[in-house]
Amino acid sequence: MGGVIVSRNTYIASIRQALTEEMRRDESVILIGEDVRLGVFAGTRGLCDEFGPDRVIDTPISELAVAGAGIGAAATGLRTVVDLMFGTFLYLAMDQIANQAGNMRYMFGGQTSLPVVFMTQNGGGLGAGPHHSQPMHPLFMNMPLIKVVVPSNPFDAKGLLKAAIRDDNPVVFLNQLSLGATRAEVPEGELVIPLGVGEIKRQGSDVTICSAGLAVHRCMEAAEVLASDGIEAEVIDLRTLKPWDKQLVIDSVAKTGRFIAVDESYPTCGAASEWAATVAEFAFSDLKAPVRRVSNTDVPMPFNPDLERQVMPSAADVVEAARSTVGVGIGVNADGMPAVDGD
């Protein structure tokens, strides 16, 4: 790859780079949302200077109409990126995303494709309070034909966003709120990570720990701690949550025989529930211990930063769950419920 410029990008700079490159590459790509020219999260900042106000479109505060316009434009020849700022604002756009985008192609017998990306911030970690800190991904995983992407680092963010923009289907692209300033080496130019393909971040033989987004970092920290106990964890970053890389997970469990699903969302119908159920269904004969889930406490995201930290999965929670599955230490309540669920 001689001649490729690699820089130490922030996550936000990676988003900007992906958008810039895709808008250069394909004139049909437009970006639309509230304050996208100025760039509230800075990932869209400066794009209007290069691509002009016809392709970088500021809108009124009207999430439903803006999301729907992104869909209508995508059904008629454009490739749209709709910036919805905070994940919770997707609730206001929900009819258009769930009823319209999610159904349109199938319901109309395949007459259209829908190259639209709904991009927003996901999850907690900034002390922003309950209306600005919710994990949104399970909601969309629960919808039949919407793709869901949650990158964990600047490199993946670029490669996955480029793939999402080139994808002909609706994609909900969730940037973890607290990863914006994290840095990694990111090459300029062609870097496309196919949707639906996970990655093994760390090889291990004793327990498979599966996660995505911010939680990947907690799992990697936990793996270090476990290694000092002599427990080798295999850490998987799914990157795309729908469709997701089942085979990668099942193959890993065949090797380790133990499975922990770690997800920054709620325990009921969370992403971890889906992973755990899939492993129980398709890898049961490989399991040496019950699967474990580590999820958020089942309460709205509190404002106080210490409480917020308690709600989200911590490295310690992951360590505790891993130890319990390999039979070291006790991490299960008398009634058999994981202690980390908060109830």
Binding site: L92, G129, P130, H131, H132, F303, N304, D306, L307
Partner: peptide, 30 residues
Amino acid sequence: GKVTGYCKGKGGSMHIADFSKGVLGACGIV
């Protein structure tokens, strides 16, 4: 974010409420 706050530190700036005074709450959603 203190426990003596209106919402016990669970709401913060955008979510102060005082139902005893008819304040049904601030709102982070426009």
